[in-house]
Amino acid sequence: MALLQLRGLNKHFGGLHVTNQVNLSFETGEIHCLIGPNGAGKSTLFRLILGEYAPGSGEIFFAGEDITTLKSFARIARGLSVKFQVPGVFKGLSVRQNLEIALQRTRHGAELDREIDRLLAFLGLEAEQKQTAGNLSHGQKQWLEIGMATSLRPRMLLLDEPTAGMSPEETFQTGEMVKRLNAEGMTVLAIEHDMAFVRQVAQRVTVLHLGQVFAQGSIDDIVADERVAAIYLGQAHHHA
């Protein structure tokens, strides 16, 4: 069953179509990766799903409900959650407090403390819990934010370049973390450039290009698709 459905989604800034008639459907329980060259409209699509932008036309359905006009926080309350591209932690607050703020909406008292401790262990940040989040390493910040996003127990987790700036080893660990969360029942949608990561986690891959769905399939289908290689090459050409 489709958990998230985008129907004919359009967003344009002036004459520029950033997303153009996007129809996409994400199934319950899958890990889905969104790839595409820079400017393909991936991040705009995320902002539309999260309600940070209002679409020019089209509809967004989540778990069968039309959420097109809902505010961001209301979408989160319905079971969406996100990890931003630039680590979005509360830099001036302690690691523990970051998690507390994420969790306190749904948990209270002793249960809240227990859950924070469990998450700290899960993220490997027990030793850093009293540190200010701004002092963490880049990779640790990424994990902390993933931890905050997942602590909401969302039905669907959106990850915008979760491994940006990570070492190959950290990237691999992040991939394993995503798979573990998925195994617990979380649907995952990730924007990612790192093909090793995509290969490690993705069950399905969608290629966006110029604001439109360009191709869709398994990672092997996509890699074998010459047209996909061509748009990436074209882009590389462009930049050179």
């Binding site: 209301a74 989160i76 309350a77 931003f84 509360f90 830099k91 001036g92 607050l93 909406r105």
Partner: peptide
């Protein structure tokens, strides 16, 4: 907690489900 979270990063606070 939410008040200081908004000071630190309003977008993140909203995306944790707070109005």
């Amino acid at each position: 907690n939410v008040i200081v979270a908004i000071r630190e990063n309003p977008e993140r606070a909203e995306m944790l489900g707070y109005d």
